[in-house]
Nucleic acid binder design. Structure first.
Lengths: 367, 367
DNA sequence: CTGAAAGCGCTTACAG
DNA sequence: CTGAAAGCGCTTACAG
């Protein structure tokens, strides 16, 4: 089957008594091979377990069939889902995945990374680093002159210079906040992620807009900036309650911080959800077993990853062909999140209707 | 900087007014280049942003500088740590990482995977799939005739046919159980992982041996086979208590199941750790914020991943050289886990001394 | 110190 | 339907 001495197309050709390009034809399943020849070559391939050298193939074709995937924080929930989905979809489409992890989202070493990927001749790059600060400035500066297509995963503040796909994070904030309103809360605080993160900003924005629309308080004392950790949730609740004891609900910008909030609430003797409603984001595996089970917002991260691969495959196809309309989808595609109702937030309505009108909802909540 | 038209070594040579192999010498920082020539070539490289085509380089060198990493369940705690560490170490040593995820640990498609990796000419393979059932049978059958070095990550039942590195899972079971004993428990149950997993078996073994050594009950009614999920922990506690209400401690084979146990204990009105001590495994981010904070066993997974890369680099170096002593480390390297004491298990001793004698410990616990 | 030649293992036109 | 030639972009001996 496998062998130590690597075998080449030449060996196969010799053994089958044909030329190497006939073998090549068989390998690439081209139609113009005589049935008998085909059989003979296939037999040899089968017998020897020959597998063509992708490196050589890539060199002549000018395509490596490898996608460069750049990610951060694989040990966290979001990135691990995205990368898993990317790998799955890529494998399905015949791409290999070159994994490149960075240690900090705000890395200055974009250039070196891009150069490495270019040197490895990846067919396309999937940039799955969240937008933090101006860590995507490079996409505007030199995004357009990159030698290969790039897909950004995760939305960004300004219209991206490169095609991008992400989750609608403002909608996350809106869904969570609307649910809290529907549950009858009217002093709704928020524990955000680091506000240098686009995702954190957008979730805050969704919260703010929803409350403002309903004429409710959105002052700064209701906002605590966390850092995604459980500890931040704990400190957040304590701090928010210090500032404003009448808070009756909190939107935690991720489940870990929601856990911290539940923990602190327990310690402070605030019962959830009776005295305090909590909604998180992510739906981590443990969420349904928090006390109480956590109401949270699900993000279709797997869909985002898979879609990124499909899109970049399209772009790669185009960049190979004599580029015509140049109709690159250089806009931002946003996928919709979904609310998962459990028990950490009061829920006065028997049926959750996301499409309900705010006024109506508030009325129902007040009844 | 970057350019659409890919530039080759030939372009650089022309622009610098030298031959291509002089450029090659500069690229590979060989000593035999005149200072002035060196300067001129470097200048051109700098100016044009030229990066040599790794594919072409690999083809001539017979080395791709890519490691094939095969993993399962990147969305879970262990694998994500291992893969992260592998990528980090690989990048540091100049290797690219080709990520290959499988959907089920007991995949039958080992052959196709191995073929793909061979076709991509990876320099070595890191097989980071846990041993489940006989999913490593291939390593004995054809492990030795593989064209490239392979490192298995995660221990295995029989002495592996290939060099392997993992965590001492029996020690995990021992550390956890000894701690429970030290806390004064003497009816100690276990919720295991799926027993087709080597890791789960070993943890069970550690539990069993430790109890047996201390003359305590290790009968089957104290064993519940879970599947690593929170839900399994919940069911596990309920079931174990049904069978044997006097249970006063449980070793959960991972933190998720430990969470399920805490959850169920809360529901059943068993206070932790007063009536029930619980120890988990992994030390997930949330563990320190469970109620009560979870005592657990930490596994040096990052070390394992990094070590795997270092080892395979050695093997690759050897397989390149005219193989001499053939002293491949074809044995199993096991790294030691560490107990992290928090509040979910009673702890009578002020200082935890893992080296303490069992008899002495039991005595202390009884006092 | 530097360059002309050969070759890595394939594929892509180009003949027949 | 099949094969001889050229070439992908490098590196490795081999001359000078």
């Amino acid at each position: 089957m496998a062998q130590r001495q690597r075998m080449t197309i030449r060996d196969v050709a010799a053994e089958a008594g044909v030329s190497i390009q006939t073998v090549s034809r068989v390998l690439n399943s081209r139609p113009d091979v005589a049935p008998e020849t085909l059989r003979r070559v296939q037999e040899v391939i089968q017998k020897t377990g020959y597998a063509p050298n992708m490196l050589a193939r890539s060199l002549t074709q000018g395509r490596s069939h490898v996608l460069g995937v750049v990610a951060y924080g694989l040990e966290y929930f979001g990135p691990s889902r995205v990368v898993t989905a990317i790998e799955r979809q890529a494998a399905e489409m015949g791409y290999g995945v070159s994994l490149n992890l960075i240690l900090e989202p705000e890395t200055g070493d974009v250039d070196r990374l891009l150069n490495t990927l270019r040197a490895r001749q990846v067919d396309g790059i999937i940039w799955a680093i969240p937008e933090v600060g101006d860590n995507r400035a490079w996409s505007r500066t030199k995004g357009s002159e990159l030698p290969v297509p790039v897909m950004l995963v995760g939305g960004m503040a300004d219209l991206p210079a490169l095609p991008s796909i992400g989750i609608d994070n403002e909608a996350i904030g809106r869904l969570a906040t609307e649910h809290l309103l529907a549950g009858g809360s009217n002093k709704i605080a928020i524990v955000t992620g680091p506000l240098s993160w686009w995702e954190a900003q957008q979730r805050l924005l969704g919260w703010r807009k929803t409350l403002a629309t309903n004429g409710l308080d959105v002052s700064d004392r209701l906002v605590f900036e966390g850092d995604w950790t459980v500890t931040a949730g704990e400190h957040g609740l304590q701090r928010l309650l210090d500032r404003c004891p009448e808070i009756d609900a909190i939107f935690a910008s991720n489940d870990q911080m929601a856990l911290g909030i539940l923990y602190a609430a327990h310690r402070l003797g605030r019962s959830v959800p009776d005295q305090l409603s909590v909604v998180g984001v992510d739906n981590i595996a443990e969420a349904s077993h928090f006390w109480p089970p956590l109401t949270t917002v699900y993000q279709p991260l797997g869909d985002a990853g898979a879609l990124a691969v499909k899109q970049i495959d399209l772009l790669i196809g185009k960049s190979t062909q004599p580029r015509r309309t140049q109709d690159l989808p250089s806009e931002m595609t946003l996928l919709m999140p979904e609310l998962i109702v459990r028990e950490s937030a009061r829920c006065l309505e028997s049926v959750v209707r996301p499409a309900i009108e705010p006024a109506q909802r508030t009325a129902a909540a007040g009844s």
